[in-house]
């Protein structure tokens, strides 16, 4: 039985005059501990699907099962969501920011607090707890956002282009950090990205989406040789450019 089961999801956005079908007939399964990527052209419904998995709004039809239970029944913070920008609250210190999720369920004292602060040093921000987000660089802020997401110990992480606002070097470093952190906690993750290389370097499987309406066009399995490497090293493996070429061609064919 799959860990996360996405079944026949359709989603249509309704406005006063128009109806736009963003997702049609999406079904896919994700295993526990797996890292998958959603890749595809702009507007093919990746964010929409991620928001639905996150439970931000219900799909027009279809259902999502996490460990065989509908999402609603899993109310104990089973989902962690990371966005393109960090969305750290500017009026809170880094420490207050990463304790936010726990504060909302009144567990931000004692052991939980110590664990969370440990998480902050895990992402290399040990001595920034008392600072405000504006005093940190973009990369540091995104790391703090990762710590905030992990603090509530979610069962699955949803990452919506979390590296796209960063410079290339920071992005490569952060890919490694996220990859290793998630592997060490054994987390399941879904990454949305425009970057073919990033998808290959980080994932176990890649779902290529096509637009109008958004649907899964093809699935790629990343070879074991690449999966075992950190993203940075995977980018330098001889298998990497081959897969890159294959996916690139498929993407090209989608756009025309």
């Amino acid at each position: 039985m799959s860990f996360l089961k996405i079944q026949d999801i359709h989603h249509t956005y309704f406005s006063n005059q128009t109806a736009a079908t963003a997702l049609a007939d999406i079904s896919l399964d994700i295993e526990k501990g797996e890292f998958v990527s959603f890749l595809g052209p702009s507007g093919c419904g990746k964010t929409t699907l991620l928001s639905i998995i996150a439970g931000l709004f219900p799909p027009t039809s279809g259902k999502i099962l996490l460990e065989n239970k509908p999402l609603k029944a899993n109310s104990d913070l089973s989902i962690g969501y990371m966005l393109q920008q960090d969305y750290l609250f500017p009026w809170k210190t880094i420490e207050e920011n990463i304790l936010l999720g726990l504060k909302l369920i009144k567990k931000d004292e004692g052991l939980e607090r110590i664990k969370t602060l440990k998480l902050l040093s895990d992402v290399g921000l040990g001595d920034t707890g008392k600072l405000y987000p504006r005093e940190l660089s973009g990369g540091m802020r995104q790391r703090a956002a990762l710590a905030r997401t992990l603090a509530v110990d979610p069962k699955i992480l949803l990452l919506d282009e979390p590296f796209s606002a960063l410079d290339y070097q920071t992005k490569l470093k952060l890919e490694d950090l996220v990859f290793e952190t998630l592997k060490s906690f054994g987390k399941t993750a879904v990454l949305v990205t425009h970057d073919i290389g990033e998808a290959i370097a980080m994932s176990d499987r890649i779902f290529l989406f096509s637009a109008n309406p958004g649907s899964v066009y093809k699935t790629f399995k990343v070879p074991d040789e690449l999966r075992e490497l950190t993203p940075f090293h995977a980018r330098n493996h001889p298998q990497y450019p081959m897969l890159f070429q294959t996916i690139w061609k498929e993407l090209e064919s989608l756009e025309y």
């Binding site: 928001s51 996150a54 439970g55 931000l56 109310s75 913070l77 989902i79 962690g80 969501y81 966005l83 920008q85 969305y87 609250f89 936010l100 999720g101 909302l104 369920i105 509530v152």
Partner: peptide, 20 residues
């Protein structure tokens, strides 16, 4: 997006008001 962050943490409407 601040509300999204709170919503994924399961925040109530009151909490969303107070925190964001």
């Amino acid at each position: 997006n601040y509300l999204k962050v709170l919503q994924t943490f399961g925040a109530t409407k009151t909490q969303a008001f107070r925190e964001a």
